[in-house]
Each structure stands twice: as structure tokens, then as C-alpha cells.
């Protein structure tokens, strides 16, 4: 049976600590990222409580988050378009772990939201959308699938707390029955 030989020696974490010459190192690297042409405008919009997209004049897609080019047509996008922020939950999950795999005390619900984008050339595969936290829905809604397709809208932070960040949206929350956005 191939492979006939599989070299390598397994060691446990305790064994590792006992080896001579084990080096521990924590890199320190600091960055300051610029948001760029399109996202700077988008973030300014969030500060004002507006979600902005860009329209591709060639395929009529509304791109949210906006980019200065349409990657489908590889042409410059032209007009800024404001979307209401209302949309449908495309998919949602419940996270019990944090960024470094530590257990969370309170689980978070995260989702992808397909935004209503008037004028968007409809296509079932590609859409204007954002990825954010969901509130006002339960773990059970995620499991049962009730959350998928649910109508949601952004819950904004109070004006004085907004900083021009994706976190100016606290989360997306379900629309009230018959609520129109």
C-alpha cells in the first residue's frame, strides 16, 4: 500500500516546551489603512445615516459596498445611488467563538443582507449586499431557517457616536409588520 513510508515525529505541546532552542516571538506590526476613493465616501455616508452604492453605467448593477470600478465590466462606475438599507437576510449563523477561537459569553448572530437596490439589474446570483451582525433574532430563528428571507433594516448608532465606520450601523434588525422603509 502506498505511501509505504510517512516520515515525521509527532510531539505534544508539553514536549515542545521541553525541547532545546524553542523560540517565542510576538510580531509587532502597526498599520494605518486608508479607505480609498469609494469607501471614504461610503463611510461618510454611514456617518450621516445613509448607505451609498455606485451604479455601473454599463451593466446597471448597483454596487454596495461601492467601488470605483465595476469588476464585471471593468469600467468606471459613475453615479452615487442611495439605497434605503432595507433588505432580506440571505444567510445567517450563530457564533459561539471570538476572533481567536475563545468561547463567547453571549453568542453573536451574523448574516449576509441582500439590500434593496432600486435600478439594480436583477440577477439571482450577484447582488448589492453587506455582511453585518443581526439583532432582534434568536438562535432558534437561525436554526429553523426562519431568519432567512426575513426583511431587515439597519439600526443606527446615535448620531454623536458615529465615527464614519461600518460600526456606525449597530446591526440589522427585523422590520416591524407593515413597516415601510
Amino acid at each position: 500500500m502506498k505511501p509505504e513510508r510517512v516520515p515525521g515525529r509527532y510531539i505534544r505541546e508539553e514536549d515542545l516546551r521541553r525541547l532545546p532552542g524553542v523560540i517565542e516571538y510576538t510580531p509587532t506590526a502597526r498599520y494605518s489603512y486608508s479607505a480609498g476613493q469609494a469607501l471614504s465616501e461610503f463611510l461618510r455616508g454611514l456617518k450621516d445615516g445613509r448607505i451609498l452604492g455606485k451604479l455601473c453605467p454599463s451593466c446597471r448593477r448597483v454596487l454596495v459596498p461601492p467601488r470605483v470600478y465595476c469588476e464585471f465590466c471593468f469600467t468606471p462606475t459613475t453615479e452615487w445611488v442611495e439605497v434605503t438599507g432595507a433588505g432580506r437576510v440571505e444567510t445567517a449563523v450563530t457564533s459561539y467563538i471570538g476572533a481567536a477561537r475563545e468561547r463567547l459569553e453571549k453568542p453573536e448572530i451574523i448574516g449576509v443582507i441582500r439590500l434593496d437596490a432600486p435600478g439594480h439589474a436583477e440577477n439571482s446570483f450577484d447582488f448589492a449586499g453587506l455582511f453585518h451582525k443581526l439583532c432582534g433574532v434568536t438562535e432558534d430563528d437561525v436554526k429553523s431557517g426562519r431568519v432567512i428571507g426575513m426583511r431587515v433594516k439597519p439600526r443606527w448608532k446615535p448620531v454623536h457616536e458615529r465615527m464614519g465606520s461600518i460600526l456606525d450601523i449597530e446591526c440589522f434588525e427585523p422590520l416591524q409588520p407593515r413597516e415601510v422603509v
Partner: peptide, 13 residues
């Protein structure tokens, strides 16, 4: 770094 990292995502999300 602008739109995703502030949400504190982990890859499994």
C-alpha cells in the same frame, strides 16, 4: 481592514 475587520470576524463565520 475597512469593512470586515471592525466586526471582529473569525474565519469560520
Amino acid at each position: 481592514p475597512i469593512l470586515e475587520r471592525p466586526l471582529g470576524p473569525n474565519l469560520i463565520w
